[in-house]
Design a protein around this nucleic acid. Structure first.
Lengths: 230, 230
DNA sequence: GTCTATAAGCAGATAGAC
DNA sequence: GTCTATCTGCTTATAGAC
């Protein structure tokens, strides 16, 4: 991969040709579109290339195999989406705000299908082991962001002592993917599920606002409870 | 959807022959095994028939198409698994018990992969619309059971007033599927996620055991909170 | 780098022997 | 009902012209 070609444009860090880079990105975007619109079972070199508007053989020239293209598309797509929301995530300061953000995120990502593609790859990873690490990496981008927010938001609440933000972030990420997949087959059901979760989250947020005495009682009970289950 | 076989009676079941019925069930079991072990992308007539130990053409004789076989396998598998746990679900009487049961269920179903196949079909349903209704039906079997338990378990807690069991059951079901898919690519991460959820559930269970005064404070705060978010 | 052409194999599905 | 054989089309992947 070292053929030093003179860049026609400045700012391109690689020695790659501009057109080549463009083709690569078309293929990555095409792969994502195919995953979203047709699912993993239809994500062949031909359909992806058609979605990208390029020749089928270029899949193999640029990525070596279909699986490799899908793996890179996973990283590419997740990176892109997480970056899009990073700023707003950084502004989340309370459980209530986090819930509101979750709903927004859902509405936005659902429309674009940018979470469902992770579900497709998660399913595909079973058959194509090459996909598993890439999918984990993509999901981990989300999980890392979620974890940061959770740490910040839970600090100072009675829950901080009894919850594991790392595990919780993984649960949130995986559940979100499951819910987006579910949305694909039963939109009404998924809507009801999201609303119910929002209510549940509001319950937790409410504890933040308890008066000191009640808060203490909750903390005490939690401590006793947790001693039993661990 | 009948007629390619001489039925003595009109209606759904065509093969009254013992051998025919046996072949059908072999194919259904083979389809489930294939989904679990190789995923939806490898679930072809040939691989399923091989897993079932029968001839490939019988897929089409008995089910008409591969999608139809997968759809029936979905119902068949979900029915079978839900039935297996129905008794124990009926015995769950508290949130704490429900949590313990959830963990058990996870351990057991994960080993057999009997939840992951729903994830595979959920992903496949995007491309094959024929699969969507069947997947919803399979998932609904679980959801209906979960909902019943939730209604029973939440009754008498301060949450009963502010949660929607139907929506919550859908959230639990979809999340469970997402987590089982996640388990396929990152077992350690999934384990952490389940543990964190267990802790979170324990927090809710703890509220059940609050003293009356604190309980009242929680209920009051919830009511105020819920007035704002609705 | 991108194209056309093509090899080799697997997919869904059907016809017809038994 | 079950089998073999086969048609058709789509799949991954490569060779070689441009």
């Amino acid at each position: 991969m070292s053929g030093d070609v003179k860049d026609r444009r400045a700012g391109e860090p690689r020695g790659r040709d501009a057109r080549s880079q463009e083709t690569r990105e078309k293929l990555l975007a095409g792969a994502l579109r195919t995953l979203v619109e047709q699912g993993i079972t239809k994500a062949s070199a031909r359909t992806v290339a058609a979605a990208a508007g390029v020749n089928q053989a270029l899949v193999f020239y640029h990525f070596g195999s279909v699986d490799e293209l899908l793996a890179e598309a996973c990283r590419y797509g997740a990176e892109q989406r997480v970056a899009r929301h990073r700023e707003r995530l950084a502004a989340v300061g309370s459980l209530t705000e986090l819930l509101a953000f979750g709903r927004e995120l859902h509405e936005e990502e659902r429309a674009a299908g940018h979470v469902a593609f992770l579900g497709q790859l998660l399913a595909g990873a079973q058959a194509h082991p090459r996909l598993a690490p890439a999918t984990v990496a993509g999901l981990d981008l989300w999980i890392a962001e979620i974890e940061q927010v959770l740490v910040r938001v839970l600090a100072g609440t009675p829950f901080a002592e009894f919850t594991d933000p790392a595990g919780l972030a993984r649960a949130v990420g995986a559940s979100f993917v499951g819910l987006e997949l579910y949305e694909g087959v039963d939109p009404a059901g998924a809507e009801a599920a999201f609303t119910a979760l929002e209510q549940l989250g509001a319950l937790m947020a409410a504890v933040e606002e308890l008066n000191p005495v009640a808060r203490k009682a909750v903390a005490y009970t939690l401590r006793r409870q947790s001693a039993r289950t661990r």
